[in-house]
Amino acid sequence: MSPLIFNETMATYKKKYKAEGKKQEIQMDESEFETAGVLNTLDETASKSEQWIEKNSKPLFIALIAIVVIFLGYLGYTKYIVEPNEVKASNELAFPRKYFDEAATAGTGIDSLLNLGLEGADGNYGFLNVADKFSGTEAGNLANYYAGVSYLQLKDYEKAIEYLSKFDSDDEMLGPVALGAIGDAFADIDQSSDALDYYEKAANKKTNDFTTPLFLFKAGQTAMELKNYSKAESLFTKIKENYSKSDQGRDIEKYLAAAKYAVK
């Protein structure tokens, strides 16, 4: 390589290196400037936050105390009022349940036993007392169920509907049975449309192999009485397709055939 070419190459290299170095230096300066800006912003934000906290420290402290008081109050209410009340209600429910259970197996004197369960005796609460005095407890809720079923057996259908309607449960069996019992009460006072509505609610409340086919069947029979044959066919078909091994499913073909024939 000639000296002239070498000198020109070196000059170009130095010029380029110097330019790139200067560019990198500018980029570093810009980066440092941006970082400083972010840090300044954070400092300003922190300073404003501290000032706000100082300014509002008293309200914040009062709010914190209020939250603690509410939380402790809730714990105290639960431990010293709710829980003891639940225990007392459960104990009170045991007395009328004894008569209710006896009525389920008694050959005679059933009405007398059911009334003792409803009204209580010897200074002990009956279902009506427990439902009224302990309305916010699980035992009070159950008392509504027992009272409703008792009135249903006593053929006091209006009272049965009243108390069963107050009962609320997501239990696999009790929830559907309570709704079905309301359906039975409506059926017994010839309010078939209401009965059908509650039988369907009972069938759909919890899906299982006992209550679902039972109340689908009752709903189907009620639909037949109302001459709503297409609905009856639909209800009986559900039993055939999904609950063929249930008690209702064994003879469902003849009910389904009757509904289909009536539709024609």
Score class of each variant (00 low, 15 high):
residue 165 S to W: 00
residue 158 E to R: 10
residue 207 T to W: 03
residue 198 Y to I: 08
residue 198 Y to G: 03
residue 193 S to E: 15
residue 160 A to K: 04
residue 155 K to H: 15
residue 182 I to H: 00
residue 174 L to G: 04
residue 178 A to L: 01
residue 165 S to A: 12
residue 203 A to H: 06
residue 151 Y to Q: 02
residue 166 K to N: 13
residue 190 D to M: 02
residue 174 L to E: 13
residue 148 G to I: 04
residue 155 K to C: 08
residue 183 G to M: 01
residue 202 A to E: 02
residue 160 A to M: 00
residue 144 N to E: 10
residue 178 A to V: 01
residue 181 A to I: 02
residue 178 A to S: 15
residue 170 D to L: 11
residue 187 A to E: 14
residue 196 L to W: 04
residue 165 S to I: 06
residue 157 Y to H: 10
residue 166 K to Q: 13
residue 175 G to K: 07
residue 162 E to K: 14
residue 204 N to Q: 15
residue 175 G to Q: 03
residue 186 F to R: 00
residue 186 F to L: 01
residue 213 P to S: 08
residue 201 K to I: 08
residue 205 K to M: 10
residue 142 L to F: 10
residue 210 F to V: 14
residue 189 I to A: 06
residue 179 L to E: 04
residue 167 F to C: 01
residue 193 S to P: 04
residue 205 K to V: 00
residue 182 I to G: 02
residue 184 D to L: 05
residue 157 Y to P: 07
residue 151 Y to A: 04
residue 165 S to N: 12
residue 195 A to S: 14
residue 191 Q to M: 12
residue 193 S to Q: 15
residue 180 G to K: 00
residue 171 D to L: 02
residue 190 D to P: 05
residue 195 A to I: 08
residue 193 S to Y: 08
residue 208 N to Y: 01
residue 163 Y to Q: 06
residue 189 I to V: 14
residue 151 Y to L: 03
residue 171 D to K: 09
residue 168 D to G: 14
residue 209 D to M: 09
residue 149 V to I: 14
residue 158 E to I: 08
residue 203 A to M: 04
residue 195 A to F: 02
residue 164 L to R: 04
residue 179 L to V: 04
residue 211 T to W: 00
residue 149 V to Y: 07
residue 155 K to Y: 10
residue 196 L to S: 03
residue 153 Q to D: 13
residue 164 L to C: 02
residue 187 A to Q: 12
residue 190 D to S: 13
residue 173 M to S: 10
residue 187 A to C: 08
residue 159 K to S: 15
residue 153 Q to C: 09
residue 147 A to P: 09
residue 142 L to A: 11
residue 172 E to D: 12
residue 194 D to G: 01
residue 193 S to D: 14
residue 188 D to T: 11
residue 194 D to S: 12
residue 147 A to Q: 10
residue 155 K to T: 13
